[in-house]
Nucleic acid binder design. Sequence first.
DNA 1: GCCCAATTGCTAAATTTTTAGCATCTCAAG
DNA 2: CTTGAGATGCTAAAAATTTAGCAATTGGGC
Lengths: 134, 134
Amino acid sequence: MPHSQFANLSRRERQIMDILYEKSTCSAQEVQQALPNPPGYSAVRALIARLVEKKFVVFRNEGGRYMYSPAVAEDQAQNTAINRLLRTFFKGSKVKAVNALLDVDSESLSAREIEELERTIARVKQAQETRAEE
Amino acid sequence: MPHSQFANLSRRERQIMDILYEKSTCSAQEVQQALPNPPGYSAVRALIARLVEKKFVVFRNEGGRYMYSPAVAEDQAQNTAINRLLRTFFKGSKVKAVNALLDVDSESLSAREIEELERTIARVKQAQETRAEE
DNA sequence: GCCCAATTGCTAAATTTTTAGCATCTCAAG
DNA sequence: CTTGAGATGCTAAAAATTTAGCAATTGGGC
């Protein structure tokens, strides 16, 4: 299982994996529609077939049509992507990353979202305090 | 300036851009050493030259040796990477992303880092409250 | 100046990726 | 059953990427 090898995906492979993680399950047509500068249908199928062969993608036959999904669990893929972001832009610092993330697009959070963030911080703080006691 | 086109980078191009953003400025040799499964020196130079031509990378001559840097400002590249992460894994939700980010690798934050997070949340909350009044 | 390691400028071959196309099959509607 | 749209299985050519190699240059040490 090559889940540590997302960095070795080619241009189109990476675009397709992103789409599959975003949508969870897709037909080849849906993948085609979501691709930037989409090639033809058979080109998309050939690309997906290649990802199936490399074990990045699995498929199931639904009513005569294949539905494709990522082969690597989403939380693993998330972790890989997050670690890459931390290393590339934030020298590994989660705090810097959170700062940047919350500033992106100057989009405001709702009161409920802020509450949730506060709960998250409280959870993390609790875990830190528990460790500090040990 | 193709800063909206990171998604179109090829495998090696992407690997090199990551290295340049991580280290800010690099010689070709340093890029070579940082690359996974590195090719030869001249292969690395040819790849970088290609990124220079595509205007993703700029260089300066320092003592007869070229030092390379990303052409797109770091904060722009950060935003692009963060937005991709949000869209791919978190349906755009910053809160979900922050949760995942803080959980990555079960690594604990220091008390100082937690304070800083709290300040960040307070800042975001203040901005939200200011907006709510308008 | 000489020497040598390291570098640049440039090229093109090797390899991989991307793309489209064709024959055949499937399924649903009439 | 027929028909036609949409799909699959498969192929290989076109295009892009990756790679290495050579000649010439550069800079530093002796």
